[in-house]
Simulated scan of single mutants.
Amino acid sequence: MSHDQEQIDPRIKRTLLVISDAMIVLMNEKGFEHVTVRDITQHAEINRATFYRHYVDKYELLDKIVRNRMEEFFAAISLPSSFAFEDLSLDPEIPPSSFIRLFEHIAEHAAFYRLMLSDKGIPGFAGRMEQIIRESFYHRLQLAEADSQAMPKTPMELVARYATSAHLGLITYWLEAGMPYTPAYMALQLKRLHMLGPTQVVIVG
Rank of each mutant, 00 (worst) to 15 (best):
E60S: 09
I40H: 05
A76Q: 10
K64G: 01
M27V: 03
E33A: 14
F32A: 13
V25T: 14
S81A: 13
R48F: 02
T50C: 06
A49T: 13
F32C: 07
Y59D: 12
S82D: 14
H43A: 09
T15P: 00
E33H: 11
D21A: 10
N68S: 12
K30C: 04
M23Q: 05
V56M: 06
H34G: 01
A76K: 08
S81Y: 09
H34I: 00
R67E: 13
D39T: 10
M27G: 11
N28C: 03
V37S: 06
E60T: 08
N28Y: 03
E72C: 02
A49Y: 04
H43Q: 14
F73M: 04
E29K: 15
K13E: 11
E60L: 06
A22S: 15
N47M: 03
V18L: 10
D63N: 10
F73P: 00
S78G: 05
D57C: 07
A75Y: 06
Y59V: 10
R48E: 11
V25I: 14
Q42D: 11
E72P: 00
R67V: 06
L61V: 07
I24V: 15
G31C: 07
I65M: 11
H34D: 12
L61D: 00
F32S: 07
F32D: 08
S81Q: 14
H54W: 12
R53H: 13
V56C: 01
Y55P: 05
F73I: 02
N68Y: 01
R53W: 01
V25Y: 11
V66F: 03
I65N: 03
D63V: 02
M23D: 02
V35L: 07
E72G: 15
I65P: 04
E33K: 14
M70R: 09
F74D: 13
